[in-house]
Design a protein around this nucleic acid. Sequence first.
DNA 1: AGAATAGTGTCTATGAGACATTATTAT
DNA 2: ATAATAATGTCTCATAGACACTATTCT
Lengths: 308, 308
Amino acid sequence: MTSEPSGTPRFPESEEQWLAAYDPRAYTPVAVTVDVVALTLRHGSLHVLLVERGAPPHQGRWALPGGFLRAGQEGLDEAAARELSEETGLQGASGAESALHRLHLEQLGTYGAPDRDPRMHVVSVAYLAFAPDLPDPRAGTDAAAAAWHPVHALDLPARPHSHSTPAGAPVDTHGGGVDGPTGPLPLAFDHARILADGLDRVRAKFEYSPLATAFLPYDFTIPDLRAVYEAVWDEKLHPGNFHRKVLSVPGFVESTGTTTPRGGTRGGPRARTYHAGHARQLHPALLRPARESEPGADDGPDSGPDSR
Amino acid sequence: MTSEPSGTPRFPESEEQWLAAYDPRAYTPVAVTVDVVALTLRHGSLHVLLVERGAPPHQGRWALPGGFLRAGQEGLDEAAARELSEETGLQGASGAESALHRLHLEQLGTYGAPDRDPRMHVVSVAYLAFAPDLPDPRAGTDAAAAAWHPVHALDLPARPHSHSTPAGAPVDTHGGGVDGPTGPLPLAFDHARILADGLDRVRAKFEYSPLATAFLPYDFTIPDLRAVYEAVWDEKLHPGNFHRKVLSVPGFVESTGTTTPRGGTRGGPRARTYHAGHARQLHPALLRPARESEPGADDGPDSGPDSR
DNA sequence: AGAATAGTGTCTATGAGACATTATTAT
DNA sequence: ATAATAATGTCTCATAGACACTATTCT
């Protein structure tokens, strides 16, 4: 059953449970928080929103934005949207013309190992958010700082041989804007794991969903879209084949009939513009270039986030 | 951040939060439960494990097995495994030769709408479990009854035009064993939604993961495997093409070198036996037969479970 | 002018699905 | 004997990817 506190369970299996059934406040409390893996594209590379913790534990370390679920007042989605807009200083997704109005938000997984947080048992529901290039965040209510960090600069746990990021990728060491300090900084709690899971999810999802458009403004070009795929997959894609493929998937993009006012910065014709179509799934899918691993030892978009 | 209770937030944004930061027991409590969508194949059709609620609310209705997370003592995975074995009366997945030792357990999603449960705000982490044909459950500790129910007999909310179940499917009205009463019975809480999400997940997952083998005993035949796919997808598959396809995917199945002792019940040669291979992902995938829907209105394995 | 890029055409290898065929077994 | 089924073979069509090519625009 989904719940117990109240009623009189006929066969209480343990003392704690019986107490729990009687008065929820009497037994060991669990806190529920919502953490957000907010991703955006800046200067051609994938960035994640992090906040610097202003209080122990893990004071001074960077963490995913998040906070407590307001019990009895909001659902998980609402809490995630609220936290994101609070920490980011931007209007929420509900606002008609706000910066976050094109935000995509989906649940990623829930993390509930008893020792995740040294203070008490904290169950954290992680969300994944994609948005077009957002302004720099202002530090939130209880954070020392907030900034977009390039994900390649973070030290993330590898998923059991998934499509892992290869070493020889062009690293974007520009640091334009407030991209935070450089160097692999350790994340607070199990947030490195959560972020790694989120990245895996995005990469897998790009194959069969049109979600890459969520990283772009309303109008975009096929080369823009390709840049998103290349940044997320960390792979060079064939421009010609990509172009044809995207147009061949029904409902992926819709032509606007116009082109960009200017060509590319280094030459080339003006590109036609498109906006996202109505498809919610890509048919047929846009498969990642086969990264050959030992056959028979393939891994996948499997195993959920667990209690780790 | 992932947590707050403790420390002194520098800019408390609301009274409740401040209290929360001070003493977690002082603010409105949230309960965390774990519910399990346990699926198995019985008599060729997909069944889900349900328990009849012995206490209000929703007394007398059927619900997913589940219960409270033991705060501070266990992680979510552990809680799910524990609840499953408790309600089912079987040994857990850890036991070497138990009935559940081949169990597959993965997180499905988390449901946390404030009004899910009339008593208090309950956040429920749903798990998905697959197992080979299991014995009939005994009623658990606080359930009036427990039984496997054929999923086609349940009244489930449709996902926004996914691959939905067609009407003209062969319905299995046998009732062999303790399959519970017939007729669409309404599930407790939002469990119909959770179950529907779980079914969507299984159906999608069968395309690119070898998880169908989790529904079968260690040794099985290709026709056995095909029966699993047909039951889950509710589609007839072409025997010849299926056979060749399965064998062509590296790591999906491994030959044992033997065959079944007897042919099929209605004739035919003895089939070769296989067991699951090492692949964790199917490459290339086993795609569902294209169910043609209006092009451009395609829907997908998208949007997580949310706060609904 | 020279270089880079948008977009299209073409060819090939591969996989999916329809269909046919052979061999084996239960009734 | 008859029917059902396991397993394999063959053919066709669609798609992915490699490569080539033209046209357009920036520096």
